[in-house]
Amino acid sequence: MTISLFITCYNDTLFPETGKATVILLERLGHTVEFRAAQTCCGQMHFNTGYVGDALSMMRSTLDVFATAEVICIPSSSCVAMMRDQYPHIAQSTGEPALINAVSRFLPKVFELSELLVDKLGITDVGAFFPHAVTLHPSCHSIRSLHIGNKPQELLKCVRGLTLIELPDARQCCGFGGTFSLKNPEVSAAMLSDKVQCVLETRAEFCTAIDNSCLMHIGGALSRQRTGVRTVHIAEILAATDAGAIQ
């Protein structure tokens, strides 16, 4: 299967390792990965902050770039949520039939990484090896918008060497919320403090998620507090093998 990767703007810029891991993982599973270099951003940050016009332009460009793609993999549930929850409304608001159609053709092709693996490819054991104690932060968008259920846990449970430790109060938001963390830094920090406390309670070595946005937030505090706990995107765990972690 040819899988088109939508890397997302912040993974491209800040977390290239996640993109590389996704490519390596999907190729190891026997698929062809393509990367359409014209892609930029789904528009989430602008839309969630109230800048609908800018988000519309980014949506148009994303739809154009992936018009001919067959299957689109996105290693970020919040970007997928933006597309599924908002693209239809944004398109409707323009009243352009072509755009509305483009969105309805686009959405069935979109898969978050764990959705792609478990639902589309029907695989939970991806042959990964990751000999560490790991806890999973189920991001808000993944549970309340994508209704991802236990897919990330199922994938992690099949990883050899990995000990999965349940996170207390797992469904609580980490407090990132995009520009929320800038507009309400105090409240965001208080929420983050609770999340970090829960992560530390697990005594895990790594905190993982299917979203680097939450991980950037949680990881920022884990680093500042010199906890020694690291964050890692689930793609990087799933790409790791006994032959050695990816570079």
Binding site: D12, M216, R224
Partner: peptide
């Protein structure tokens, strides 16, 4: 660990990972 202006609230309690040398698209 210490950004100015409206980003200060972020780095007040969180470290920020710097932008790495190579973006994903460059690697690709």
């Amino acid at each position: 660990a210490n950004l100015p202006g409206f980003l200060r609230g972020w780095t007040a309690v969180r470290d920020l990972k710097p932008i790495p040398k190579q973006s994903f698209r460059q690697w690709w």
